[in-house]
Design a protein around this nucleic acid. Structure first.
Lengths: 347, 347
DNA sequence: CTGAAAGCGCTTACAG
DNA sequence: CTGAAAGCGCTTACAG
């Protein structure tokens, strides 16, 4: 099975390679019937372009836009995605890929929409985005679809969209993983507390899904038979957190374990450290610097990771492959749920 | 910073591109002083070949040999490495890479040597091997070095070798991870048993390192204060295992957790199931089908994985990059130690 | 609407 | 020992 070249199609069809190339790329200026003839032969021969020759010859740069939250000190999680993009870019070096970032302030709807507008104006050929804000993201996605621009979701998922794929965690499953870890270590009669730190839990579905997974694990079985308490904290401000948690601990003195459903785990860890509550099991999310510090000091027992670097890396490679070959992918590619404790955190 | 082409070097040096190409590839037939001149310019311009053009034009196939144990039902772990190789091959598709396997019977010295001999006769340009049998591997490595053939270790590690790199777990660390998991769930006063199943523990260093990591964790701290018992079982035959373990349990009735230092974990799991010892915590290695079955049924609590698929994938890509560009790598690239429990095993 | 030609950067005979 | 030319498979003006 030697490679089929456009030269072969040219010979068989009786047209020149220039014409064949034009129909293969839909560049117009070809008579309808010759187009058909050529396409037929291409299909029969199962023609696949040689992407190496293509890369060598083309001047085309693939313009890919990335729309994610801006990383900052309280939020270093979002620095991991650019790291993954860079990894992919490095492997794609021989080819011509051009990535531009559109970074919005986390949980700021207006800023998200404004950055998305910038993105649309720049007319990228593919988009990778984190649709954290559900409503606003849906709006952008429909605009992309109108323009025929493919897009891939990372981090968060919206169902029934025209996305090329989704790369990230199965949030429900990761909640169950957290539950199983708590259950392995906690006393059978202790109470368990779930802390959600988010401005608008409604509009941040994956935190909600994690909590649901966590609860369902215990609903369906598990060793622990204690009460399951949920508390929502709207701000990650330490005073607010302290006040809320003081109240919870006053009401429930037998709490043996805490789950924090987001990367803000380190804030609850500070609280526990401050109060000297070292025996309480604390499980949370994401291997950010702040969280890892508390993990190493034994305040956090486990972190659940969703491999953001890998997701973004795969997303970019996937987009490139789609753009060059037209290949499509399964609509959801869940990444493995990663379990991190102090002993395997170094890697 | 535009790309430097051999044409640029040709112009600057006053020679033709043919001559430049000859010195760049050390193909001889060039006067010593012109060679020097050209190399100097190439260095100054920091010339890097365009691998896309190279791939398009060359007829050269890179021949890479893979020397690993043959997978079989008792040993499906070794089927994961070819999976990783295939992944890499798929990404390297536009280039001309040719992989041949040399599969030996696990722990069979003679067979290892015979397959290695076949490999040497076929004169590959790069080798990826699992140096499980220390002594025999050293012999092969020195032969490869004589021939100037680069080689990468996967799975097991031998220090102070001329290997291009090592890709695999940090066995000592992974032993500590296992210990921390046991420690999180086991009663503080229970005894803990370590089971080594291997024909020749001496010559299989990584099992030894895992056990050492496990023991040191408890030596340096940990909640559990019970006794730590070690048993060595030479064969994975069920009768042998049963007999040995019966004896151990008779002597130590308070065993609360078991570590199996290898992929043979499922054999101990069968034993526990047979005896109805469901409350004993069992931690072992590798996500093979047999082990995963017991994990899902709750007999095995945790499996430690070393990401064999990823290691092999990286190894092949690394070898390819080395062969094409001459790039060198750090001598050890440890893979993350993966923690698997029933809830995150599906991925 | 179609074809012939030049070019991407490198490699490979071949002539001298 | 060195250079000129053809070719890898595809794309890109350009001429007709």
């Amino acid at each position: 099975m030697k490679q089929v070249r456009i030269k072969d199609i040219a010979k068989l069809s009786g047209f020149s390679i220039g014409t064949v190339d034009r129909v293969l790329h839909n560049r117009g200026e070809v008579a309808a019937d010759t187009k058909e003839k050529i396409l037929k032969i291409a299909r029969e021969l199962d023609y696949k372009p040689n992407i190496v020759a293509q890369a060598l010859t083309t001047k085309k740069q693939y313009k890919i836009a990335v729309l994610i939250p801006r990383a900052d000190k309280d939020n270093s999680f979002w620095a991991m995605h650019p790291a993954g993009i860079n990894k992919a870019l490095n492997e794609l070096r021989p080819f011509k890929v051009n990535v531009s970032y559109y970074l919005f302030e986390l949980h700021n709807e207006a800023d998200f929409l404004s950055k998305a507008e910038d993105l649309l104006n720049d007319e990228p050929e593919g988009v990778i985005l984190a649709p954290i804000l559900r409503k606003e993201s849906l709006h952008i996605c429909s605009r992309l679809e109108e323009k025929g621009v493919p897009y891939i979701f990372i981090d968060s998922h919206i169902e029934n969209c025209g996305n090329l794929s989704f790369l990230g965690e199965n949030a429900y499953k990761s909640g169950r993983v957290a539950a199983s870890l708590v259950d392995f270590g906690v006393g059978a009669d202790n109470d368990i507390l779930v802390v959600n730190i988010a401005k608008d839990l409604e509009n941040t579905r994956h935190l909600y899904s994690r909590t649901r997974g966590f609860m369902n694990y215990f609903g369906e079985g598990g060793r622990n038979k204690g009460r399951k308490i949920t508390v929502e904290i709207e701000s990650s401000n330490m005073d607010t957190v302290r006040q809320k948690l003081n109240k919870v601990f006053a009401d429930y003195p037998d709490i043996g374990a805490i789950l924090v459903s987001s990367a803000k785990t380190h804030i609850v860890a500070s609280y526990l450290e401050e109060k000297g509550l070292k025996d309480i099991i604390l499980v949370g999310y994401e291997m950010t610097k702040e969280n890892l510090d508390f993990l190493k000091h034994g305040i956090i027992n486990f972190l659940i990771g969703q491999r953001p670097v890998e997701s973004s890396e795969k997303a970019l490679k996937m987009m490139f492959e789609h753009l060059t070959t037209g290949k499509t992918f399964s609509k959801e590619e869940f990444q493995p749920v990663e379990i991190i404790n102090p002993e395997n955190a170094d890697f």
